[in-house]
Nucleic acid binder design. Structure first.
Length: 304
DNA sequence: CAACAGGATACGT
DNA sequence: ACGTATCCTGTTG
């Protein structure tokens, strides 16, 4: 990393298919560069870009169908991009990073499906490694890197240092190393699974990222916790009364319901229906009413 | 009147 | 099958 002529840019994360850059890109790109997002605070994630070269993501050829997230379908896209824009404009760097990481995860997921390989590089066979290299080659418009690392399995790649990579590929070793690192980090994140994780002690960023990663549909309780973990944004509509005990209050029921509706693409969502779903958690032991029952106050049975 | 409780059913995965 | 979403009747503060 940090080799001369290279920097690392969040802009680089986006899926290469030029046609997947919709109008949204106009919303995201300028703020990202303005923020000088050159590295995202996600262990091991560096996003290579060579200076003053046209964006290699804009590969004209396309082997993948456009990957749209359900969140960005037509009925909510304007809202979503408006939200995004608002976040980018007035929210801290971490918010932008969150969005960016979400995109990375989606792209990895897409690649996995396309290539029919595991998300975790450690599980790759030699054939999988070659597939991944071909894919990366295509993404970055690299000349024939796939011949290197012949006969190496994912495990082998993962045990190699950046210097090893550079030995294999004089020019693109560090780039491939960084790219592999992204995959490994993503796999590591998926490892420590969402529910009742102690890993979420890592902070908002982890759950933020998972919330942007729609491979598994988000659960209502996760969504509520997510809002609660971003008090700077949502304390007006939901907040902790006692974080240690997991007791929280919904201050603006309509607002929370609307947010939930947006997330699930359920325009007709309201608090009546949302609260019914919360009540389903009673017998599952996920959420309950606190000992002293109060209006719009609930309690996570298992606090964070 | 809005929140609450919980049954019944539909729906998407 | 699971996790809601939707609709509903009845209760409570």
């Amino acid at each position: 990393m940090g080799s001369p002529g290279c920097e690392y840019s969040a802009l680089y994360i986006r899926h290469p298919q030029a046609d997947t850059w919709g109008d949204e890109v106009e919303d995201i790109k300028p703020p990202c560069s303005l923020l000088g997002l050159t590295e995202i605070s996600w262990p091991g994630v560096y996003l290579p870009r060579c200076d003053k070269e046209e964006n290699p993501w804009e590969t004209p050829a396309s082997t993948a169908p456009p990957s749209r997230t359900p969140e960005l379908n037509p009925s909510t896209s304007s809202q979503a991009s408006a939200d995004m824009e608002a976040q980018v404009e007035e929210c801290p760097l971490e918010q932008v990073q969150t969005m960016v990481v979400g995109e990375v995860l989606k792209d990895i997921d897409t690649a996995c499906k396309l290539l029919n390989i595991a998300a975790d590089p450690l599980d790759w066979s030699c054939v999988h490694v070659q597939k991944w290299l071909l894919w990366t080659e295509h993404m970055y418009r690299l000349p024939q890197v796939s011949t290197v690392f012949q006969g190496q399995a994912g495990k082998d790649l993962c045990s190699m240092t950046e210097a090893d990579f550079r030995q294999h590929s004089w020019q693109f070793g560090d780039m491939l190393y960084a790219h592999l690192d992204i995959w490994r980090s993503a796999a590591a994140m998926k490892e420590c699974s969402p529910p009742e994780d102690d890993e979420s002690a890592k902070g908002d960023s982890w759950s933020d990222m998972m919330s942007n990663y729609p491979s598994q549909p988000i659960h209502l309780w996760q969504f509520l916790r997510e809002l609660l973990l971003k008090p700077h944004n949502y304390s007006c509509c939901i907040r902790w009364l006692n974080k240690e005990k997991g007791i929280f209050k919904i201050e603006d029921s309509a607002h929370v319901a609307r947010l939930w509706g947006i997330r699930k693409n359920r325009p007709a969502m309201n608090y009546d229906k949302l609260s019914r779903s919360i009540r389903q958690y009673y017998k599952k032991g996920i959420i309950r009413k606190p000992d002293v029952s109060r209006r719009l106050v609930y309690q996570f049975v298992k606090p964070v």
